[in-house]
């Protein structure tokens, strides 16, 4: 079985973004970029499936600018076999990404597609589910455990009330939650090896996909900042302030 993993290049999760002064977006100039943390978990899961003999090939795809090759190489250093970059400098909406991934799925015919549940920049939490609808596939979102068998996969999902387990017909879409696994670090020899793995570059036009979006961002603002309050000296002072000043207890 082939496993396809989609990864996104995003701002490093440790960095607090700043809004540009003209309010057109956030300032990404000279900011450290990395693979979206949920995508790292997706890569790790696919590589583990290969190590268990469940998957025979792990293909990693990213849609983004030329420099997103870095994230594809990282995924290959972690164990993916080959990469596909659908190169575009336009920032695309989830729907366009899902349409492009649908085309990749048509070509590659994977048994499983694993994606992160959300990217930490747009926080949309949409792409995997949209791909599911467009490709006519089942989906197991927010996965914390997966067990693949002959024609199906059992997925345990993190839901608001606790955990839910579903059985999905293959081929299926999985989106990862934080507790699915702990991604490994790439070793130096594997980073070197990854440089020689095949990486195919395509464009949205190659797939004949219309990437025009019905959404327009008019403005990006800073949120209202909270100002730091006061330090209290004791528990009794805290209780007194909560009762008489804040009046919340």
């Amino acid at each position: 079985m082939k496993v396809l993993v989609a990864v996104k290049r995003v701002i490093d999760y440790n960095i607090k973004v700043r809004v540009k002064s003209d309010q057109s977006g956030v300032d990404l100039a000279n900011v450290k970029m990395a693979m979206n943390p949920f995508c790292e978990i997706a890569v790790e899961e696919a590589v583990r499936l290969k190590e268990k003999g469940v998957a025979d090939e792990v293909i990693v795809v990213s849609i983004g600018p030329k420099v997103a090759q870095e994230q594809i190489r990282t995924a290959m250093a972690l164990g993916a076999d080959r990469g596909i970059l659908v190169e575009t400098d336009e920032p695309l909406e989830s729907l366009a990404i899902a349409k492009l991934l649908t085309k990749v799925v048509e070509v590659e015919q994977p048994g499983l597609v694993i994606l992160g549940k959300q990217s930490i920049d747009a926080d949309n939490n949409q792409t995997g589910q949209m791909l599911g609808a467009l490709a006519g596939m089942s989906q197991g979102t927010f996965a914390s455990e997966i067990n693949v068998s002959e024609n199906s996969v059992e997925v345990t999902r993190e839901i608001d009330g606790g955990l839910q387990t579903l059985s999905l017909n293959l081929p299926a879409i999985i989106t990862t939650d934080l507790r699915l696994n702990e991604p490994r670090y790439a070793s130096l020899p594997n980073i070197m090896k990854a440089k020689r793995k095949p990486l195919d570059v395509k464009t949205p036009a190659d797939f004949g996909v219309n990437v025009i979006s019905g959404l327009k961002t008019l403005l990006v603002e800073s949120p209202q900042e909270r100002s730091a309050g006061v330090l209290v000296g004791s528990v009794s002072e805290l209780v007194e302030k909560l009762k008489n000043e804040a009046k919340v207890i």
Binding site: L95, N125, Q129, M130, A133, D160, L215
Partner: peptide
Amino acid sequence: ATTNGKNFMPRVAATLDVSQISE
């Protein structure tokens, strides 16, 4: 925007060929 809404709504949007506006 519960885990349930997040789960099925993007499928609705894609089926209708429209974007979703999240949260």
